[in-house]
Write a protein that binds this DNA or RNA. Structure first.
Lengths: 343, 343
DNA sequence: TTGTACGCGTTATCAC
DNA sequence: GTGATAACGCGTACAA
């Protein structure tokens, strides 16, 4: 005999035999119970329980050429910004038959391309990727993917398919205008990592300052190192050493901003009176800090929720109201940029 | 004819036809190129490239009853503690053919059980789950899973299969002893979420205090709310209101500790002189804060790395040196518990 | 509402 | 070293 031994686990056929029905009836009971008579359904459900039967998802995917997999590719697992969005995606996907397949591109475009290729090998139901800065090959693969694709965290007039996020450029610009309005004059920028989104924030910020005649490129300090609080403190120190007249900074994210605050505190510099600080994203810690820190609030959870919603709608054949959803942002002004009147 | 139309993507058969070989040879070229002659291999590789062929992972999983999937179940996606471990897992798994399937149990045991069931449906190559507090049914499923299982973040004499982590009880005890040694006398505890691991930390902490005759249950304040900096500040305020004589607290994690520090700062209370604060995990922010915060350092990245290593070894048939690996912890004493001598 | 027959794309088995 | 053929477990198409 040439029989192969499967993993040994019970199959749909075992269930069918035990319940004295055909396999297709078991299959239907699993996927669309309403199509099966109550009597049979109960017998089948009992058999499933008795055998501890677990459907084989790969066999199902192969037979139906649908995988129920939603591929999600983010550039970082430790960045809280993505953590909130991921949580939303998992929360939304969980009650449905869909499953998340998560990839970490580590802010490397080539790695993102590799992950897209791998995920495509699973014939996913949908794909969610961060941002709009894919390699040419990656973009081509996404455009040819025969499934809905949602780009998140940004808005762009030319999405692969759908998009939900906000304008980083405008967020940065709002930060710049805020500092000017608060009376700061020698306004700098501290940026780590400087991925494309951080870069757009910086550009918007520069534009905001330029409009007010307050743009001084010498006060901008960036690095490609990953962002961290320690690095925020360090860059703050370096920038002050170079330009002691500095009186405010926009940090490209909240970790950098809180680190910059700690740096000032260790150095005995008063925030906001000597230096104003504003961050980006408004993580929970910003409101808790002492002094509380001004930031640009973005709704990361809602981005994830909306992305899954768009996917679900697309899978159900609905046409979305809009291909690109701009969730905006909101400046949260707090103590760290509220300095007393200049004497 | 009753032919079905696949998704339209090229299959291994298309590659075989183009290269004028049989499908099995293509399959071998993909999985074990050494078993195929150079001439054929080159022809096949050219055909793969020409057709942009991507292997269908579900078909492969079905035929081989091996899936290359490593299921990972953690209780939280936003908790930085797991973020570091996840990053390590992804880093380790990425260069191998293995793929991560991530589940979020949200600190709900029943949800964890559900995820284990789903993951088992994918016939995973291995499973990684957080902790050792599964439901009875979940534990049974894990024990019957015919794949390596690694429980992470804890150590326990009775693992399902393998385990890597550290003792939360001992970590808590070390925190207690440290506060006593630093001269604090009315020592409290602030705890949020209070999942089983937090609970063990608290128990170890209480034991540490008890040994020194400093255990006062009235100074322990816990809640089931999720931990956050805001909550840390809040509980700190409540505890001080109830017991103004409080002079030190152990917070069940670093977020709570930093929040407690912020709370003190907003209230004008000096840390460490009036109140000492110690956290748990030693996230990067602890060293950066002002004052820097004492914490119990745990090597979360190494936990993830080790877990994947153990899996790889098990899949290659090696017998591990030890089923349970204790990575330990290290107390990082900093400013927040270094008060000046009592006058 | 339920069942029969076959195909999904790949790999294990056995033969050459 | 290479190939023919039969599984792998399930879903679709069609029939009853």
């Amino acid at each position: 005999m040439r029989k192969r031994k499967g993993a040994g686990r019970p199959t749909i056929a075992d269930v069918a035999k035990k319940a004295e029905v055909s396999t297709i009836t078991v299959s239907r009971t699993l996927r669309d119970p309403a199509k099966v008579s109550t009597a049979l359904r109960e017998r089948i459900e009992a058999a499933i329980a008795a055998l501890d039967y677990v459907p084989h998802s790969h066999a199902s995917a192969l037979a139906s050429s649908r995988s129920n997999i939603v591929g999600v590719i983010v550039p970082s697992l430790t960045n809280n910004v993505f953590a909130d969005t991921l949580r939303a995606i998992y929360d939304e996907v969980d009650p449905s038959p869909l499953q998340v397949q998560l990839g970490n591109s580590r802010y490397v475009a080539a790695e993102e391309e590799r992950l897209i290729r791998i995920f495509l090998g699973q014939r996913p139901s949908a794909l969610i990727v961060a941002g709009g800065d894919q390699t040419k090959a990656a973009r081509a693969m996404l455009e040819n993917a025969d499934c809905p694709v949602v780009q998140i965290m940004e808005v762009d007039p030319d999405p692969v398919d759908m998009m939900v996020g906000f304008s980083h450029y405008e967020g940065g610009r709002a930060a710049g205008m805020h500092l000017v309005q608060q009376g700061y004059r020698r306004i700098g920028f501290i940026g780590a990592r400087m991925d494309p989104r951080s870069r757009r924030r910086m550009e918007g910020f520069a534009e905001g300052l330029r409009t007010a005649g307050r743009h001084d490129p010498d006060l901008f300090m960036i690095t490609t190192q990953s962002s961290s609080m320690t690095l925020g403190a360090e860059l703050m120190g370096q920038l002050r050493a170079r330009r002691p007249d500095l009186d405010a900074v926009f940090c490209n994210n909240d970790d950098m901003a809180l680190g910059a605050l700690f740096g000032c505190q260790h150095a005995g510099i008063s925030v906001p009176d000597e230096i104003g600080i504003i961050g980006f994203n408004d993580l929970e810690m910003m409101a808790a800090a002492c002094p509380s820190l001004t930031s640009i609030r973005t709704d990361r959870y809602e981005i994830g929720r909306t992305a899954v919603d768009m996917i679900r709608a697309a899978l159900e054949g609905e046409r979305p109201d809009q291909k690109v959803v701009d969730l905006g942002f909101e400046l949260q002004a707090r103590q760290s940029t509220a300095r007393k009147a200049r004497r």
